[in-house]
Amino acid sequence: MTGPKLIDPYGTPAGADPRGALQSITLDLDRTEGESVNKMKSTHLEPFPDPVLEVPDDLKRSVIVSSVDYLLNWARKSSVFPLQSGLACCSFEMISAAMARFDLARFGMEAMRASPRQADLLIVAGTLTWKMAVPLRRLYDQMAEPRWVISMGVCATSGGPYYQSYSVVPGVNHIMPVDVYVPGCPPRPDALLYGIMQLHDKIRRYSLNGQAAGRE
């Protein structure tokens, strides 16, 4: 083969076989990741307060705004796209909920998005470890507002069976505010559907006058 020699962006000498090069050059990346995990572990000590929604008084008075609200909230609640990110056991119940028997499509939620940019809902399905907390917080930050979070299962809610473990986050609310908690280990798909309906109820109560939807 003729042409210019290969240039490795990671500093392997030009022309050298790049095979096997990866594991020798990624230690710095691992260290950087470890630093960010340790930083998150030392800073996220207290849980975020739950974003409880209070219905403002002027909602009843303002007829025009409330009908706009109604339309907006109806549109929002009918097309909540979840992010396709399963962490552990609960992800299989989440998949089951999306499959033929439980049929998440009834709620306009069958489009599980692989990209956080296109997702409205983050279902934290399973045990969250500190190592995973950093990417998960990044996913949450990448989601466009309004965004909602469902904590599915006791592991995500409080650490569950792994509460005392050295590597498990004791509740995803240490990492991000959570709108709906679904108990169970793992919750049945019906329980997840009930949690989703609770979220729909919540979305229905937002108002342009009051608290903006899905903000921290």
């Binding site: 230690l27 691992d30 260290r31 630093e35 995990v37 340790n38 190592k131 590597s167």
Partner: peptide, 16 residues
């Protein structure tokens, strides 16, 4: 050949 941590992150204190 590749002696580094596998489950926990680099910079984790101790061996649990």
């Amino acid at each position: 050949p590749n002696h580094k941590r596998i489950m926990l992150w680099e910079g984790y204190p101790g061996h649990p």
